[in-house]
Simulated assay, not measured.
Amino acid sequence: MGEFRAFVCRQTGNIHYQTDFIDGSELKDELPEDIDDEDKYIPLPDKRELGLGKPLVLDFAREFLPNDFDDARYFFSKRGAYPKFKALLARRGAIDRWHVFEAKATEQALRDWCALNEIEIVG
């Protein structure tokens, strides 16, 4: 897909990011020269670091699709799991429920991460 890096400045709260996409397009923000200063900048975590990948899917399946839990677990034991999982959600009419579940979990994980890293959430 491409590489994405994002950092929060602990002093200003500004987010600096840089990404390259495989189709050749780029979305770049010039990163500060001192971006490697760990006292000043902290890298934003990805989904896996926040536990929002496979563990979240399995939590959802366990709670809302218990009869399909084994299938979901099997999907995520191999590559290409998300398209299969999304197809299962479509068959069960659970796409909207998944989006709500995922959004709430993402918000909570980010709030927890901010608290852990002493980043104040404003707004």
Rank of each mutant, 00 (worst) to 15 (best):
M1V: 14
M1I: 13
M1K: 11
E3C: 03
F4C: 00
A6S: 14
V8W: 04
V8M: 12
C9R: 05
C9I: 10
R10A: 12
Q11W: 07
I15Q: 06
H16I: 02
H16W: 12
Y17K: 12
Q18D: 13
Q18Y: 14
D23H: 07
S25I: 07
S25P: 00
L27F: 04
L27C: 05
L27I: 06
D29Y: 12
D29M: 09
E30C: 04
L31M: 11
L31D: 04
I35N: 00
I35G: 12
D36T: 15
K40E: 10
Y41C: 11
L44A: 11
D46L: 09
E49T: 03
E49G: 15
L50A: 10
L50D: 06
L50Y: 03
P55F: 03
P55C: 02
V57F: 09
L58Y: 03
L58G: 01
L58V: 03
D59F: 00
F60A: 11
F60M: 07
R62M: 09
E63Q: 13
E63N: 08
F64A: 01
L65H: 03
L65P: 02
N67W: 01
D71L: 15
A72C: 15
A72I: 04
F75Y: 15
R79S: 12
K84H: 06
F85R: 07
F85Y: 10
K86L: 01
K86R: 14
L88C: 01
A90E: 11
R91D: 14
R92D: 00
R92Q: 15
R92K: 15
G93H: 01
A94Q: 14
D96N: 08
D96I: 07
R97Y: 02
R97C: 10
R97N: 06
H99Q: 13
V100G: 01
V100F: 07
F101Q: 04
E102V: 04
K104A: 05
K104L: 12
K104D: 09
A105G: 03
T106E: 15
R111M: 14
R111P: 01
A115I: 11
E118N: 12
I119L: 15
V122D: 04
